[in-house]
C-alpha cells in the first residue's frame, strides 16, 4: 500500500482523472456526513408531538341542551371546539352569500352534516394566529357578520364560520365528526 503511493504522480490515476486518494477523501467525508444526517433525524423528531399527545381521545357532545341561537365551547385535542345551533335567520344569512366572492369559498351545506344544516361544528381556533374567537359564549361580540369575532387582530367570521373580514386566511376548521343520534355527535 505505502509503496503504491510513491509511484503515483498527479494525473496518473484512473481514466477519468479520479485518483485513489481523492476517492478515499470523498468517501471519508461523505460517510460521516451521512451518519450525522441520520443522527439528526431523531434529534429533530423528538420535538414532534409525543405518543401521549397524539393519543387523541375523540369526544361526544350532547346537543339536547343547546337551544336555537345558542352555542357551546368544549375541548377537543386540547383546543376549543364550537358547537352552534343556528337560527333560521342565520342559516338564511349564510345561504344568501355569493360563494364566489369569499376568500375561502364554501357553502354552509359543505360545512355541515347532510340534513343537519342547523348544527355548525367548528374548531374555536382563529385561522390567523390561533386565538379563540368570541361569539360562542352568551353575550359575546359576534362581529360584523354575526358569526364569530376574533379580538386578536380583528377577523370576522359569518354565521357559517367563514372568514369575511380581517387577516385570517381560512374559514374556521370543521373537524371530522358523525351524528350518533339526533342529539349526540362524536367528534374525532
Amino acid at each position: 500500500m505505502a509503496t503504491l503511493e510513491h509511484t503515483e504522480s498527479p494525473g496518473h490515476g484512473t481514466e477519468d482523472g479520479v485518483r485513489r486518494r481523492d476517492f478515499i477523501n470523498i468517501a471519508a467525508v461523505s460517510f460521516p456526513v451521512a451518519g450525522a444526517a441520520a443522527i439528526l433525524v431523531p434529534l429533530i423528531n423528538q420535538m414532534n408531538p409525543s405518543a401521549d399527545v397524539l393519543a387523541l381521545a375523540s369526544i361526544e357532545v350532547d346537543l339536547s341542551a343547546i337551544k336555537e341561537g345558542q352555542a357551546i365551547k368544549t375541548i377537543f385535542r386540547k383546543q376549543p371546539l364550537f358547537v352552534r345551533h343556528l337560527t333560521a335567520a342565520e342559516i338564511a344569512d349564510a345561504d344568501k352569500v355569493d360563494v364566489t366572492t369569499l376568500r375561502d369559498p364554501q357553502t354552509l351545506e359543505q360545512r355541515t352534516s347532510a340534513g343537519k344544516k342547523q348544527w355548525l361544528i367548528t374548531m374555536g381556533v382563529c385561522t390567523h394566529l390561533g386565538c379563540v374567537p368570541l361569539g360562542a359564549g352568551e353575550g359575546e361580540n359576534r362581529g360584523e357578520f354575526g358569526g364569530y369575532f376574533c379580538p386578536c387582530h380583528g377577523s370576522s367570521y359569518d354565521t357559517a364560520a367563514r372568514i369575511r373580514k380581517g387577516p385570517a386566511p381560512k374559514n374556521l376548521e370543521v373537524p371530522k365528526y358523525a351524528f350518533k343520534s339526533d342529539t349526540v355527535v362524536a367528534v374525532g
Binding site: 408531538p49 409525543s50 399527545v53 386540547k78 394566529l129 390561533g130 386578536c152
Partner: peptide, 30 residues
Amino acid sequence: KVITGLFSAIPVVGTPIQTWLLGGFAPDNA
C-alpha cells in the same frame, strides 16, 4: 400561541412546523 402561529403562515409546511415547535397542537407541557 400567536407567535408560533406565525410559522403556520408558511405555505404547505407551516402547520407541521408549528406543531413541531410546540410538540402538540396547542401550547402545553411539551
